[in-house]
Design a protein around this nucleic acid. Structure first.
Lengths: 268, 268
DNA sequence: TCATCCGGAA
DNA sequence: TTCCGGATGA
């Protein structure tokens, strides 16, 4: 059987909130070493990877590796029924077709349990090579959120350039053009306000803002976000979720010379 | 060329917020003595006048008079990308078709620049005579905002009567009727809480509340607002923006016999 | 603590 | 498309 308890239920709630707009359904794989998820977003443009380590839970037991096919909108519905201070326990029998969620309020005077129906999902296994990146940028998650929100109001795509000067986000649209530049900065006493640019070689890539913005739904999970860039490879947007694990978003760059030709979903 | 820097970027943000609902587009005229704008609102009912003096800026340079045709919704979009503590610099080459905005965060670790496309706008030149008014009322800007908000929930038009008793705002609607009276009051130690009524002769005029309410979008710009009234002339609603300049709204009175059932102020 | 903005639901 | 609730910034 599988059983995992997390006393900070709000973390689980935020994780699923961050995912569910992107990923309709996917397999959460449980194993003795923890839980993980790899899934493409519904338009098969970007990829989400979630890793939660067993020892990040208050209690974790898994006798057998098992994929649990989750419909994230439904998962989210149930998690909305948990209070933010509730402890959440996940439970499933081996090969069960349902996942049981137990919510215990902090003062124990309220206990709820919900069964989520599991689905059988073809698991596309997606090797994600561990990469050396040309540039790694750590910045406040709120800053990242602010920048992509601002730029989204101006244009659809963003050119991210990392140089020794700093990291620059550029876009343009009907209104005009925009450039936001961040410089390496570790002057604040609060580590979470630092901007750290680790540059092996300059790199400049273009991405669809829509997805970068979506990734920022994970802002509440971590004080900082890490962007990793390498020429012709997907950007990685990573949030470290305390000691529990991390959530990573991967988005392939636009190829410059076919950039803005309408290849987006043509719906009419 | 033209270049103007204001370290209190929030002031510029608030100014444009105050304008943009009323004025879709208009020419901001820059000259060696500062910046100014005169524009009718989109329904051509009221008029907005903005004056910002050169010496109110941290830095101001203008080699040549020049109108800059601004689309205020777009201007606002870009200004929303500035932090409230940012310093904002405006720049344009002579006869340029774009205005560059530079935002610098207070700790300098973030620099953004935006180009706003300029438009070519027919400038209607609007002489506004300096007037002697029958009544001038200064009151807390928040008080003005409160009164027009309250009255808007009761009726569509307001009769403003200034007498030696004070200033009275009256409206009526399906709900019933409402009268709010303010008296001259300088007892508070805080000057911004004073209500000062400077009356040359009694006057009573009727206005569309909708516009008066819109003017109160400028509330954040100044602690006090000044209303100036003269029979058969537009009301002037003026906010003094620190040492920088002022923003004034003009609205013509309704002619009594086609709107309100004439009570007081009979058309003898 | 309040007002504004953004996302989700009807 | 419009209204309501939640989240965020002042």
């Amino acid at each position: 059987m599988f059983e995992a308890k997390i006393s900070q239920g709000s973390v689980l709630k935020k994780l699923v909130e961050a995912l569910k707009e992107l990923v309709t359904e996917g397999n959460i794989d449980v194993s003795p070493s923890g839980m993980s998820l790899q899934a493409m977003d519904s338009s098969h443009v970007c990829l989400v990877s979630l890793v939660l380590r067993d020892d990040g839970f208050d209690h974790f037991r898994c006798d057998r590796n098992m994929p649990m096919g989750i419909h994230f909108a439904n998962f989210s519905k149930i998690l909305k029924c948990a209070g933010n201070d509730d402890a959440i326990t996940l439970k499933a029998e081996d090969n069960a077709d349902q996942l049981t969620l137990m919510f215990e309020s902090s003062n124990q005077d309220r206990i709820s349990d919900f069964d989520l129906k599991l689905m059988s999902i073809e698991s596309e296994h997606l090797g994600i090579p561990d990469q050396d990146y040309s540039a790694e940028i750590k910045m406040p998650a709120s800053e990242y959120q602010r920048i992509v929100r601002d730029l989204t109001s101006i244009g659809d795509t963003v050119l991210i350039s990392a140089t020794k000067e700093g990291i620059k986000f550029s876009t343009s649209g009907d209104v005009g053009t925009a450039n936001v530049t961040l410089r390496h900065n570790t002057t604040s006493e609060k580590q979470e306000e630092h901007t750290i640019i680790d540059l092996k070689e300059p790199v400049a890539l273009t991405f669809a803002l829509r997805y970068l913005k979506n990734f920022s739904n994970a802002t509440a999970l971590a004080p900082q976000v890490k962007l990793s860039l390498t020429k012709d490879l997907p950007i990685v947007v990573e949030y470290q979720v305390g000691e529990l694990g991390n959530i990573r978003f991967y988005l392939a760059p636009k190829i410059d010379d076919e950039d803005n030709m309408g290849e987006d979903e043509a719906q009419s």
